[in-house]
Amino acid sequence: MITLENISKTFANDEVKTQALTDVSLTINEGEFIAIMGSSGSGKSTLLNHIGLLENADAGHYWFEGSDLYQMSRSARQKFRASHLGYIFQNFNLIDDLTVYQNIELPLLYQKVAKSERQQRVNEVLERLELTQRQLHRPLQLSGGQQQRVAIARALVTRPRVILADEPTGNLDSRIGAEVMSLLQELNAEGATIVMVTHSPEHAEYCGRVVEMADGTLINNSAKLATAN
């Protein structure tokens, strides 16, 4: 489904250059649940940002079902990202001034989905994630776990082909973290492709494959862990 080929990325400022990714190649198949692990500064979030088209590589290719995404224009990539990829962040990244419902509805608005369909799809995910009672609340009125569920709902509402999660349990306690992981596993079981960055080996156990990184390179691309439970 996704093939990254020799992706390299250097960050530079006036004083220093940092090689964030060096010739990274990675294939992600449809329906996989992949964990990217590594120490701080190893390049795992940078890799996820490349997969999510939030960064452009200095070199290499990004194939998605045969199309080279780096050949696309900026706006085409933006459209692709909005329709094919869903994001979940460690710090939830919800808009504090919007209600739960409005936060979830936001991507559909930008995709210009008709109002009735928007309502139907938002209600679906609200129900699926047991947030219906909270739909009129604002993010700051919710617990961390609930906020992350809203973020997941927002990622799901566009029915993306791939869900990208950047340390989705990083700001949650272990019990809530486990709940979120179970939810992601459920989604994977329903067919979603998920790529997740995590520090936690325990949470990595929920994934079908673990990719390990160090100093901007992949050091283990194929570790298979037993499914938790």
Partner: peptide, 9 residues
């Protein structure tokens, strides 16, 4: 956030 969820420029 708006950009991530699909807002174009």
């Amino acid at each position: 956030v708006r950009q991530v969820v699909g807002a174009t420029r």
